[in-house]
């Protein structure tokens, strides 16, 4: 594999289109292999790729999908996986992030998968350690593997993202998913539109290369896909939103509002979904929903990220 790929995956903003496309091609292969294995066909054994390597996941925030997905991906490549438990660790005694990761590095980590509430924390970790650092979501900065897995699911449906329009609807201000997707999808040639209540659209977001829709209708009209983001209760406490009901009424995706979207357009959500708020159950469970496919893509993308960052030799 002659792909030039960085040692750390901290953000998508600085990746090039060939790097993203190379990664997605590899992830696509892994995804097809996983599908064949599920179908009972002979499994391509990838457990040799990272045999003897240590992957440590450090999550300073809760997670269902990302953490289990990284751990399954690492195990599928034969790596040894260690789950760092924040509350059972010396972090609970006040050990700093830098000291913690230096120690994990000395123990023999080859990759550290980091999720942290502070934007930039994975970069700080990358400066402190010898291991590869993979950002699993930092504050409102980026969630690179989410952007990549969304791109993979869309690319498989469409063949290419060139010329497509993707609307991202919801809390753009606090969303690392939105930022990673804006970078990733636009690098792949898609046009990204963001929309949401004005309290949740940061001023200047256009500088990232997207446009801003002022209403759900404007966001959905002519879009090829729409991605709904999770609405968090904190947004109601800090007076950015009146409540889930008002949000569902103005920006929620449901059978009524989906009339504004072209018939063949796809629906995505990074999870966890507030059913009935940003997306109704009938939309989430409909055939046009890619939500479960996104999760499937997630494992394949994380396999590819680990393989590339850890310089695994993937046979053609």
């Amino acid at each position: 594999m002659a792909l030039d790929f960085p040692k750390h995956l901290l953000e998508l903003e600085t990746l090039t289109r060939p790097q993203i496309e190379g990664l997605l091609s590899l992830a696509g292969r892994f995804k097809r292999e996983r599908a064949r294995a599920r179908g009972g066909e002979t499994q391509t054994d990838r457990r040799g790729l990272l045999r003897g390597r240590n992957v440590i996941t450090l999550f300073f925030e809760t997670s269902t999908r990302t953490r289990s997905s990284f751990e399954v991906a690492a195990k599928a490549l034969g790596a040894d996986v260690l789950t760092f438990q924040k509350d059972a660790s010396s972090v609970a005694k006040g050990e700093s992030l830098e000291d913690t990761v230096r120690n994990l590095d000395a123990i023999g980590a080859d990759a550290l998968v980091v999720r942290h509430p502070a934007a930039g924390a994975p970069r700080l970790v990358a400066r402190a350690v010898r291991a590869s650092v993979i950002n699993a979501g930092d504050g409102a900065h980026e969630h690179p593997t989410q952007g990549l897995l969304d791109a993979l699911s869309l690319r498989e449906r469409w063949g290419t993202l060139e010329g497509k329009t993707v609307a991202i609807v919801g809390d753009i201000a606090h969303s690392r998913v939105a930022r990673s997707n804006i970078h990733c999808l636009s690098k792949l040639g898609a046009h990204v539109r963001v929309g949401g209540p004005s309290t949740l659209i940061p001023s200047g977001i256009e500088k990232l290369g997207c446009t801003v829709a002022r209403s759900l209708r404007e966001a959905l009209t002519g879009a090829d896909a729409v991605m709904a983001l999770r609405i968090q209760n904190e947004r109601i406490a800090d007076a950015r939103l009146p409540g889930a009901r008002d949000y569902a009424r103005t920006w929620g995706l449901n059978a009524r509002t989906l009339e504004m979207l072209p018939k063949e357009a796809l629906v995505l959500h990074p999870g966890p979904v507030n059913r009935g708020v940003e997306m109704s159950s009938d939309v989430l469970d409909s055939p046009r929903s890619l939500v479960m496919d996104q999760v499937d893509s997630g494992v394949a993308v994380r396999m590819a990220v680990l393989a590339l960052c850890l310089r695994a030799e993937v046979p053609a």
């Binding site: 109601i236 406490a237 007076a239 950015r240 939103l241 009146p242 409540g243 009901r245 008002d246 009424r249 103005t250």
Partner: peptide, 17 residues
């Protein structure tokens, strides 16, 4: 605001409707 307590926003879209 809810209850005119000055803390959380009232459901303005619903009120308008």
């Amino acid at each position: 605001t809810r209850g005119s307590l000055g803390e959380q926003l009232a459901d303005m879209a619903e009120l308008k409707e």
